[in-house]
C-alpha cells in the first residue's frame, strides 16, 4: 500500500473514532452536544486560539519561544476595543488588533535578535512589561470612572457567524500560503536548522527573524480582535497569568505537529484546536468545573501532546 493511501486510511480511522465518540457522547447527553447551537459555540471558541496557534507555527519553526504572546493579545484586544469605540468602527477593531499585535511582536523579535538573550527569557521579561502596561491602562480607565475597552454589542459582529467563519477562512488561506508558498515562509522554516547553516544558504537571518515577529503579530492581532469581538472585553492580567493564554493554542500546535507527517501543520492546527475545545466542551457537559480541573486537563493535554511531538522528532542519519 502506498504511503499516501496509508496516511489517508490512518487519518480516516482516527476521524471515524472521534466521530463515534462524539455520537455516543451526544446520545448520552440527549443530543445537546451535537446541537447546532453547541457546535456554533464550539467552532467559534476554537477559531480564536487557532490564530494564535498559527502564529506559534512560525515562532516555533525558527526555534524561538515567545512567552509574551498572551500579554500581547491582551493589549491588542484592548486596542481593538478602544479603536472600535471611535469613529473608525470595524476598521478600528481590525486595525487596532492587528497593528498592535504586529508592533509588539516585532519589538519582541527585534529584542531577541539584537540582544541575543534567549527568547524564552526575554519573552518573560516582555510579558511582565506588557502586563504592567495593561494594568496601567486599566487603572487609568478606572480613575476616569470608566472600564477597560469594551465593545458595544452592535460592534461585535466580527466575533459571530458568519463573519468569524469568513475571517477564519481568510486566515487559513493567508497562513497556508505564507508558511508553504512564500520565500519568507520557507526561510523562517530554514532558520529552525540554525543561524549558521541558514546564513551559509544565503538567507538574510536578521531580516527573517524580524519577519517572524511581524507575521506572528498579524495572527495574534487577528485573534485579539476576534477575542474582543466575541467576549466584548479582555481583562488585564497580572503575575504572568497571561502565560496561560497560550497553553490552549500551544496544545493545538503540538498536536498538529504530531500529525504533521500526515497533514500540513497549518491545516492541522484548526482541526486540533477544535479537538482540544471538543474535550473542554465534553468536560463541561460532564460537570467538571472550569478553572480548576479543566485547567489540569489542559496541562495534561499539553504534556501528552508535547511527548507525542517529541516522539516524532527523528534525526537518524543513515
Amino acid at each position: 500500500m502506498s504511503e499516501k493511501k496509508k496516511n489517508i486510511l490512518q487519518m480516516g480511522g482516527i476521524l471515524a473514532v472521534i466521530l463515534l465518540v462524539c455520537v455516543l457522547f451526544n446520545l448520552k447527553y440527549e443530543g445537546r452536544f451535537l446541537s447546532g447551537d453547541n457546535l456554533n459555540i464550539l467552532i467559534s471558541h476554537a477559531i480564536i486560539p487557532t490564530f494564535v496557534a498559527w502564529g506559534l507555527c512560525f515562532v516555533m519553526a525558527c526555534d524561538y519561544t515567545d512567552m509574551s504572546i498572551g500579554s500581547v493579545l491582551v493589549l491588542a484586544a484592548n486596542a481593538a476595543g478602544a479603536l472600535g469605540s471611535t469613529q473608525l468602527g470595524y476598521g478600528g477593531v481590525i486595525l487596532g488588533g492587528i497593528c498592535t499585535g504586529m508592533l509588539l511582536m516585532t519589538l519582541n523579535f527585534l529584542i531577541f535578535v539584537y540582544t541575543k538573550i534567549p527568547s524564552w527569557i526575554a519573552g518573560i521579561g516582555m510579558a511582565m512589561i506588557y502586563e504592567a502596561a495593561a494594568i496601567f491602562y486599566s487603572n487609568y480607565q478606572l480613575s476616569k470612572g470608566s472600564t477597560i475597552a469594551q465593545l458595544s454589542s452592535e460592534m461585535r459582529k466580527l466575533g459571530k457567524p458568519p463573519f468569524i467563519y469568513i475571517i477564519f477562512v481568510l486566515g487559513l488561506i493567508v497562513a497556508y500560503l505564507i508558511y508553504n508558498r512564500t520565500e519568507v515562509g520557507l526561510n523562517i522554516r530554514a532558520l529552525g536548522n540554525g543561524i549558521k547553516l541558514s546564513e551559509s544558504m544565503g538567507i538574510h537571518t536578521v531580516k527573517t527573524i524580524i519577519m517572524v515577529g511581524i507575521i506572528c503579530g498579524f495572527f495574534v492581532g487577528c485573534s485579539a480582535f476576534l477575542n474582543e469581538s466575541y467576549n466584548a472585553r479582555v481583562n488585564a492580567k497580572t503575575g504572568l497569568t497571561s502565560l496561560a493564554m497560550i497553553f490552549q493554542p500551544m496544545a493545538a500546535f503540538m498536536l498538529a505537529q504530531v500529525l504533521q507527517s500526515k497533514i500540513n501543520i497549518i491545516i492541522g492546527v484548526p482541526i486540533c484546536s477544535l479537538f482540544v475545545y471538543g474535550i473542554f466542551n465534553m468536560l463541561t457537559f460532564m460537570g467538571v468545573p472550569s478553572g480548576t480541573l479543566q485547567e489540569a486537563v489542559l496541562g495534561l493535554i499539553v504534556i501528552v501532546f508535547g511527548i507525542l511531538a517529541q516522539r516524532k522528532e527523528t534525526k537518524v542519519v543513515k
Binding site: 519553526a61 500560503l177 508558498r181 512564500t182 520565500e183 520557507l186 526561510n187 529552525g192 536548522n193 547553516l197
Partner: peptide, 27 residues
C-alpha cells in the same frame, strides 16, 4: 554544514534564491 533538514530536498537546491520562483509573491 549541509542541508536544511526540515525543508524538502527540492527546496534545498534553491534555498536562498527562491525569489526567482515567485509569481505574485507566491512560490
Amino acid at each position: 554544514l549541509g542541508c536544511l533538514s526540515n525543508l524538502p530536498a527540492g527546496v534545498n537546491v534553491f534555498s536562498g534564491r527562491l525569489g526567482q520562483f515567485k509569481n505574485h509573491g507566491i512560490l
